[in-house]
């Protein structure tokens, strides 16, 4: 390849602009900061927001991990890793503990994060109030005035229809007692991991051109009713491969007769637990 890209693809001015937005987002936890989203060499919906964040955050010493659906080797994860391998020539890893920046779409790794790590999320719809109020201007006012009561209408509807809060992912959270934030498509199983986390969490929405963040050690509370508290999903099974019973499990159908198995969605964690067991 004869064409030379700038380090991590984006030009330095764009990276500077994005870093400024990140700093603002860190200063106001949960607040959606608009930024001048750049055109990236992949379509919207494939992680353009996350990839711009990662590009602006990367330094030469960084070690990158990319997860898609909890897995390190799905198409989206592989292509993004490939992209940064080409444009930034940085170290790529699958090992959660080694990574300094972890870009993800659906999962927060099962391995506990460290203060040295930055989580980067790819967000499709950053506005949690959109369901209840489609008008942008009105959304902005609701955030500004902390008018979050109507947000509970969504929970009410869930209980009225399903007799429980049926939202399984993108479960809205209250950040630092101020802003309501959509934690992107992570399962609600991962919501508690955001609360008082020692790592930095930055969310980027490429199409909507918004950045927001949860700085380390910030309160993140999932919305609920007094009589219908926030609950985590539980499985009767444990992982068929590594035997963990504390992880988020995927159900996999293995044949035409409906035989199914449950396995960890975080493949890296699963294989590491299995390695340890063998030793």
């Amino acid at each position: 390849m004869s064409l030379q890209y700038n380090f991590a693809y984006l030009d330095e001015q764009s990276k500077k602009m994005i870093r400024r937005s990140i700093l603002k987002a860190m200063a106001i936890p949960g607040f959606q900061v608009p930024f001048g989203g750049r055109e990236m060499p992949l379509p919207y919906g494939w992680g353009t927001g996350g990839i711009q964040l990662t590009a602006s955050l990367l330094g030469k010493e960084d070690c990158l991990k990319v997860i898609d659906q909890g897995s390190d080797d799905t198409t989206n994860a592989v292509s993004i890793k490939d992209f940064f391998k080409k444009t930034a020539r940085i170290e790529i890893t699958e090992n959660t503990e080694d990574a300094t920046i972890i870009q993800t779409r659906h999962r927060i790794p099962e391995t506990p994060l460290t203060p040295q790590q930055i989580m980067v999320y790819q967000v499709p719809i950053p506005e949690p109030l959109q369901f209840i109020e489609p008008k942008r201007q009105e959304n902005a006012k609701m955030h500004a005035f902390s008018e979050y009561g109507t947000m509970y209408v969504k929970l009410y509807e869930d209980i009225a229809r399903h007799e429980r809060i049926a939202m399984a992912f993108d479960y809205p959270v209250h950040v630092n007692g101020r802003y309501i934030m959509s934690p992107s498509p992570i399962p609600k199983f991962d919501n508690p991991k955001l609360h008082q986390s020692c790592a930095m969490h930055i969310f980027g929405a490429g199409r909507e051109k918004r950045i927001y963040a949860v700085p380390p050690y910030t309160d993140v509370v999932s919305l609920d009713f007094e009589d219908y508290p926030f609950e985590l999903e539980e499985w009767d099974e444990s992982c068929a491969i590594c035997g963990s019973d504390q992880t988020f499990l995927d159900e996999i159908i293995t044949d035409d007769e409906g035989t199914r198995m449950f396995v960890c969605s975080d493949t890296e964690f699963c294989s590491r637990v299995r390695q340890k067991g063998k030793r």
Partner: peptide, 8 residues
């Protein structure tokens, strides 16, 4: 709910 009621 807008007025703060949080009991379903």
């Amino acid at each position: 709910m807008a007025n703060g009621m949080r009991n379903y």
